[in-house]
Design a binder for these strands. Structure first.
Ligand SMILES: [Mn+2]
Ligand SMILES: [Mn+2]
Ligand SMILES: [Zn+2]
Ligand SMILES: [Zn+2]
Lengths: 153, 153
DNA sequence: AACTATACTAGAATAATTCTAATTAATCTT
DNA sequence: AAGATTAATTAGAATTATTCTAGTATAGTT
């Protein structure tokens, strides 16, 4: 029953991804990418900063935001809304998928796109609606076994 | 092809709705309710303030927020996220429905729940996910005829 | 009218994000 | 390699949405 996807790229793969997107793989960008591409926790900018500081103590918050925004622009990350509706979270899973938010913990989990079938009824929607993206979030509780908390590589 | 729902309650209906929810229908609450329950524009708090000030010039921003939060608490309004992901919008349509956001104008439109069929595949989702709410937003362009802009009562 | 509870207000505080202007680092040209 | 140019990073100020505070006004109750 594994919904989450952890990208887990190594240093070389990360460097190549950045170069590929036309981004110079500077040290701070590498540090930020290494963190966001190896977690499925949908971190906030502040959480990214806290983690990245461990490896790279001089990184500034402005650089964290600049870098995350750059990654979003280049399609390497997606922005998603935190459930408090106040801050942004960053999602390294840029493939179409859905989210489940546990309302007790606030934790945002990826859902495999196969768990939901979504069919727009064009006859009712009207052809004048040009859809670019469908965003779906489920909210509720996940009654998980403790093992569910364990991250696997 | 009408997706939007305009509640359009008159003064007496609004007063009754407030009383019904256990809210004292003070003058400022009436003014705020009269606006938010007669628009399908999904206004922000700032937009609510600007409108309400016309009828009620001394209303404070704190009262606008207090009142909107109170209405949300009592289930009279729903909060939805603005597409800039920075501010909250208020939706007088508390029945299950979906949203379409025109990415050129930022306009948020209601979609009738019949335009989308959503089926969770419980066998894949897992019974431990207790779903309370499914939130769906479509983004794209609406290539409307000019008449589409006209509000009908 | 006095008392109490509720509602309202102006302005301060908070917090997420962006902006500014200066500094550093990397890349390019000669 | 030196100098010139461009790109990246920084600290801190600015912006903005929202909440908080503490005082004032209003409404309901005896
Ligand atoms: Mn952004
Ligand atoms: Mn709220
Ligand atoms: Zn995700
Ligand atoms: Zn709506």
């Amino acid at each position: 029953m594994e919904q989450g996807i952890i990208i887990n790229r190594n240093t070389k793969a990360i460097r190549d991804s950045l170069k590929n997107a036309g981004i110079q793989p500077s040290a701070s960008r590498m540090a930020i990418a290494s963190f966001v591409w190896n977690t499925d926790s949908h971190p906030t900018a502040e959480e990214v900063k806290i983690e990245v500081e461990k490896a790279f103590p001089t990184v500034s918050l402005a650089t964290v935001y600049n870098t995350l925004n750059l990654f979003v622009e280049k399609g390497l990350l997606k922005e998603v809304q935190d459930s408090n509706q106040r801050s942004v979270r960053y999602d390294c899973n840029t493939t179409p998928h859905f989210h489940f938010i546990d309302e007790a913990t606030g934790q945002m989990m990826d859902l495999d796109p196969e768990v939901l079938r979504i069919s727009p009824d064009l006859s009712k929607l009207g052809a004048e609606f040009k859809i670019r993206e469908i965003e779906v979030t489920l909210r509720g509780r996940k009654m998980g076994t403790p093992q569910d908390k364990v991250k696997q590589k």
